[in-house]
Amino acid sequence: MSSIFQSSIGKKLIMSVSGIFLVLFLLFHMCMNLVAVFSASAYNAVCAFLGTNWYALAGTAVLAFGFLFHIVYAFILTVQNRKARGNDRYAVVDKPANVEWASQNMLVLGAIILIGLGLHLANFWYHMMFAELVEAEGQYGPTEGAQWLSYYLSKWPVAIAYIVWIVALWFHLSHGFWSMLQTIGWNNLVWLDRWKTAAKWYATIVCLGFAIVVLGFAFEVFPLLDNCCSEAAAECATKCADACSCK
């Protein structure tokens, strides 16, 4: 057992297991976001629940470790792989048929996702979870998640950055999903194509879920059922007066 994580397959296993973990987290995160599509008050309730809950905090800590392992091992493996390629590069390179573009660019896609993650942590996680921890005062409180969404995502550069991020995520997931199952050995001739198809479905569903929220708030059509006016302070009422029917 001692040498398993020193072997090539063991290192890949770490990538795979931390990947599975992130894949499941994204699904959960996407479901949570979709609440904001329908109801601001429900979304704020989710914010309140997950911000103060110590289980959620513990989950966040575990998640951070998962990310850390995934990123650190990505770099370790890439350095080893570049060394294994040798000193001379091929003069002519032609992509073989049936090779996904994403599969050969996972590190670059991962780096884009990492930059996006920095932006996301600074603007959402900081406001919704960290601010509550340190009891910081902000324009919107940690439990006024829907108001913060409306305010922040209506800025066009932010919305565009998020869409770029989500596209990179789609490519990363479309390969990563089936690749993680291949690495732990849950694959064979029949399941190879099935997992590849499942990967595209999963990536599409998750990324569409994220993108809908970004676009919906960017165009100020969300939340659909109730609206922030009924819940929030006066500044919000003026802001979303155009989008909502109430005044």
């Binding site: 090539s8 890949k12 493996l77 090779v99 996904e100 599969s103 050969q104 690495t183």
Partner: peptide, 9 residues
């Protein structure tokens, strides 16, 4: 030799 990243090349 390097580590497999399942590119399928």
């Amino acid at each position: 030799f390097g580590n497999c990243t399942n590119t399928g090349a």
